[in-house]
Design a protein around this nucleic acid. Structure first.
Length: 571
RNA sequence: CGGGAUGUGGCGCAGCCAGGUAGCGCACCUGCUUUGGGAGCAGGGGGUCGGGAGUUCAAAUCUCCCCAUCCCGACCA
């Protein structure tokens, strides 16, 4: 294509509201524009990248035998009611009503609809099936942010596997795991597979593919020694032994006037690791106590995962006083029998502990947790911290900020069951297939590449998803020999199947160089009178910016080589 | 939803406190010069100052309400 006739509205300054690097560069480079918070228009350049990302995904999905579908984005309420998610998805689902008054939803994901189609599977001989689509998803995110990283409307490749038994599901899951690694390698994304929480979807194994970036929204614990890696929502670590302080046969009360915090109590001679922190939550309507060691943060997601609770909110002051008779700062679980009590594993076998006495300005010391507290459930509830020891090998864990680029998980039979999917097995018995669900956000992957592939001059696209692979920069468009040469190279490169952009704009060379760098075209050929006197053009790779003089007659072959090897990177 | 901030031409901003002709840079159009890293000179076009109500002779500027956008938190595939 000829730059002079394309719509590539580059900007010298990014809009003030764009903060994330990918957001700034994608807008400045003329790849996209915002329509409203969380909704972006793809301009021609952005759409080319988006489609190339989709094509890489498509090839790898086809490569594992998956079949492409296209399902509706708008769904009747009935399918979501069948799975129970019409209720449980809450405000995050966009809902509307048609002229007949029927309730509709915009799809956030497609388990229900795919499972509905799967009801036409009849026999174990039909299994396994791997089905996918690249379709728009709609989610009423409470806070869209960071350009394409968190939006309300986005293309997602979602796939679903149907297998007769767990062994089959394992195979389908592993196929996806491998395909995802190939996809991210081809996108030049360093995506680490990590253990993850299954969240609202339910199910057993759950692995996220994480790209380290300050623009991310998830924290991942990574062990550099043994390779353990897990989202902090489920990561564990080994704690150093704490020697219990001596305590008597029963807890003893002591006055703590004005002491309301862990820190203040620590100053009074009770170190945080010898305190029991008592949190009061309303869990699905019931006031509930959650106990952790004084220096351990509570991780709500772990609690939700372990209990299946839907509503988990901190109780307010009135509820707390009504339940325990004291205000935060003097709360404890000793002697409490009418409330459900959850305790973190780190409190097991702990004695000589200090905790609130449920009377303002009074605490208890010498508490033996297992002896003095009626714990109903022991769970892992604490957020691990940077530098703690790996539970497998003891090395120090590092906590890294990451973008979640993909997520695969085993769903089990929940959706197939809800949608009434059964097949006959070899013994003629009705069986419900087990499902897996696998997602990659296309725009988010694109943004993740932008986050990790740029310099001070702009984007640096990997060959596989660059909007154009080569840009021919004509320094002086009214120099006949230059334009003639450029036209010739343009035709030959196109004939060789290279995506080539001819910068035939009548502009300053500096502007053209700067634009080519901003939009991140991997290879640039500079064509000007100076070089053509000696039948030379200049070849520059975006990655290193170094200039190489190349004879005009050799440059097409050189470019084709570079493009082909660039495209095969990661394969 | 809580906290903070911002809305003035396509983009970046000043003007607001002390009410009185809406301005600057970039971009855009015309002409001349220039032409291998974001040109120079001259001329020109483009803005309901987020929206509504109010105060006032007079509102971008003061008051109230609303809306939008961004950041932190809550929440979350």
């Amino acid at each position: 294509m000829r730059w002079s006739s394309l719509f590539i509205p580059t900007l010298r300054d990014a809009p003030a509201e764009a903060e994330a690097v990918s957001h700034r560069l994608l807008v400045r480079g003329g790849f996209m524009r915002q329509l409203q918070s969380g909704h972006y228009s793809m301009l021609p350049l952005g759409w080319r990248v988006h489609q190339k990302v989709g094509e890489v995904i498509r090839q790898e999905m086809d490569g594992i035998g998956a079949q492409e579908f296209l399902l509706p984005a708008m769904h009747p309420a009935s399918v979501w009611q069948a799975s129970g998610r019409w209720e449980s998805m809450g405000d995050e689902m966009f809902r509307l009503t048609d002229r007949k008054g029927a309730d509709l939803a915009l799809g956030m994901t497609h388990e229900e609809v795919f499972a509905g189609i799967a009801s036409e599977l009849n026999s174990y001989r039909d299994l396994p099936q791997l089905w996918y689509q690249i379709q728009w998803k709609f989610r009423d995110e409470p806070r869209p942010k960071s350009g394409l990283l968190r939006v309300r409307e986005f293309a997602m490749k979602d796939s679903y596997s149907f297998d007769l038994d767990d062994a089959g599901l394992d195979r389908s899951f592993d196929l996806h795991h491998d395909a995802y690694q190939r996809i991210f390698r081809r996108l030049d994304l360093d995506a680490l597979p990590v253990e993850a929480s299954s969240g609202a979807m339910g199910g057993s194994a759950s692995i996220e593919f994480m790209v380290e970036s300050p623009a991310g929204e998830d924290d991942v614990a990574i062990c550099g020694d043994c390779g353990y890696s897990a989202n902090v929502e489920r990561a564990t670590s080994a704690l150093p032994e704490v020697e219990n302080r001596p305590g008597g046969d029963a807890p003893e009360r002591f006055a703590t006037p004005g002491i309301r915090t862990i820190a203040a109590l620590a100053e009074a001679g009770h170190p945080p690791e010898h305190q029991v922190k008592t949190l009061v939550y309303r869990v699905d309507g019931a006031i509930t106590l959650i106990l952790l060691r004084g220096d351990h943060p509570f991780l709500e997601q772990k609690f939700v995962d372990a209990t299946g609770a839907v509503e988990v909110v901190p109780a307010d002051g009135d509820e707390i006083r009504a339940a325990l008779g004291a205000s935060p700062g003097s709360l404890g679980a000793v002697g409490v029998t009418d409330l459900t009590i959850y305790a973190d594993e780190a409190l097991r076998s702990r004695s000589g502990m200090t905790t609130g006495a449920n009377e303002d300005d009074v605490h208890l010391e010498g508490v033996d947790v297992e002896r003095d507290v009626a714990v109903d459930h022991w769970l892992d509830l604490r957020l691990i911290l940077d530098g703690e020891a790996c539970a497998s090998c003891g090395a120090a864990l590092r906590i890294a900020r990451c973008i979640e680029a993909g997520h695969i998980f085993k769903l089990g039979r929940r959706y197939a069951d809800a949608m009434g999917v059964t097949v006959l097995d070899a013994d003629g018995v009705n069986r419900v297939p087990t499902m897996g669900s696998y997602g990659i956000g296309v725009g988010r992957a694109m943004a993740a590449v932008a986050e990790t592939h740029h310099d001070e001059n702009g984007l640096i696209w990997p060959m596989n998803i660059a909007p154009y692979e080569v840009v021919l920069t004509v320094v002086k468009v009214d120099h006949e020999e230059s334009m003639g040469c450029a036209e010739r190279l343009y035709d030959e490169l196109r004939a060789a199947g290279v995506d080539v952009l001819l910068d035939d704009r009548d502009g300053r060379p500096g502007v053209k160089f700067a634009d080519a760098e901003l939009i991140g075209i991997p290879l640039r050929v500079t064509i000007g009178p100076r070089g053509l006197e000696n039948s030379i053009v200049e070849l520059t790779a975006r990655t290193d910016g170094e200039r190489h003089d190349v004879p005009v007659d050799d440059v097409v072959a050189r470019l084709v080589d570079l493009v082909v090897s660039g495209r095969s990177a990661g394969r």
